[in-house]
Amino acid sequence: MTTLYAILIDGMIYASWLFMVAAGLTVIYGVMRILNMAHGSFYSIGAYTGASLVGWYFSGAEGAPYWSYALLLGAALVSGVVVGLLIEQGLLQFMYKRDEILMVIVTYALLLILEDATKLIFGVDPYFTFQPYSLLGRSEIGELTFANYDLALIAVSAVIGAACWLTLNRTHTGKVLRAVIQDREIAIAMGVNVKLMFAATFVVGTTLGAIAGALTAPAISVSPGIGVEVIVLAFAVVVVGGLGSIEGAIVGALLVGITRAAAVHLAPQIELFVIYGVMALVLAVRPQGLFGRDLARKI
């Protein structure tokens, strides 16, 4: 039973992190139909800005240590909004009518540019911001001990998932976004400001990616290349769940997270394989993903 509890809790923690990373990616694709290869860079930017600001805070400030959590979120929000607006207004708005494959190439080029820009700004040395992680202490669940910070990430990811789902399904803005998703031309004819909707959606997606990076920074070594590693896992999650589906991202993250945790505890030699094994099995049965929707063809 101890091993089962460890698998479930570790799987939930890993799934919560996966969902936070994948949420922005699936929001952008769901509305804008852009498979954003640069999403890993937004995660990296959020991690670096959060780690830099919190490191500065603990190195010289004498304020309450719990303010570091506000700094992490503030750094993620500011960096996500600023970078998102610059990229959407300066580049992507001129590419919306282009082929989706070309958009993949453009965002991949953007990933390479942002990775090098991150190295120029923050350097190549790793950043360690352990204080917020250790500040919350640890809890015992049966015979197991877990960091409270990791458990808190489960609650944060649940809040993010609920907020995304409620916004898309229970608000007027969500209904307008769904109209844009179904038929962009008709939405424009009905008076919807599609350019504004696209800009807002992209900024939300980049901000979600930056938040995931900032909240992960205290638990990892923030170093060059973390964005490239993350984007592969994020794609695995959204492909399993179905591109553009919040429900799919949640289920995909849970499926991948718990399967990986089971492999770590029971068969660690296949840990790297199981994520892609799950993706292959799901796509063999449902090529559009578990919650993927069939798109209507225009004739």
Rank of each mutant, 00 (worst) to 15 (best):
M1G: 15
M1A: 15
T2M: 14
L4R: 13
L8V: 15
D10E: 13
D10S: 13
G11Q: 04
M12P: 01
A15M: 09
V21C: 05
A22D: 04
A22N: 05
A23Y: 03
T26G: 13
V27P: 02
I28M: 05
I28C: 09
Y29I: 07
V31G: 02
V31M: 06
M32T: 03
M32N: 01
I34G: 00
M37V: 10
H39T: 07
Y43T: 05
G46V: 04
A47L: 06
G50W: 06
A51L: 07
L53P: 00
G55T: 12
W56G: 08
Y57G: 00
G63D: 07
A64I: 09
W67T: 10
L71G: 03
A75G: 14
A76T: 04
V83P: 04
L85N: 05
L85Q: 02
L86P: 00
E88K: 01
E88T: 02
Q89E: 11
G90L: 12
L91Y: 07
Q93V: 14
K97N: 14
K97R: 13
D99V: 11
M103P: 08
A109Y: 06
A109L: 14
L112M: 14
L112K: 12
L114Q: 06
A117V: 14
T118F: 04
I121D: 08
G123S: 12
F128Q: 09
F130M: 06
F130R: 09
Y133G: 07
S134C: 04
R138Y: 14
I141D: 08
I141Y: 09
G142T: 09
G142P: 05
G142A: 13
E143Y: 11
T145P: 03
F146W: 06
N148S: 09
Y149W: 07
L153W: 03
I154K: 06
V156S: 00
A158Q: 01
I160Q: 03
I160E: 00
G161S: 12
W165M: 11
T173R: 14
K175Q: 14
A179E: 03
D183P: 10
E185V: 04
A187C: 07
I188Y: 04
A189Q: 12
G191C: 10
L196D: 04
M197K: 08
M197W: 03
F198Y: 09
A199D: 08
A200D: 01
T201Q: 03
F202P: 00
V204R: 00
T206K: 01
A210F: 01
A212E: 03
G213S: 11
L215R: 01
I220M: 08
S221P: 02
S223C: 07
G225P: 05
G227L: 11
G227Q: 05
V228A: 06
I231D: 02
V232H: 03
F235A: 12
F235I: 08
V238D: 03
V238M: 10
G241Y: 06
L243C: 02
L243D: 00
L243V: 04
G244N: 06
S245A: 10
I250P: 00
G252W: 05
G252V: 07
A253M: 08
A253L: 07
L255M: 15
G257M: 07
T259M: 08
A261M: 12
P268D: 12
Q269I: 11
L272W: 15
V278P: 02
V278A: 11
V278E: 11
L281W: 11
V282H: 05
V285S: 11
Q288K: 15
F291D: 03
G292V: 13
D294Y: 15
D294I: 15
K298Y: 13
I299F: 13
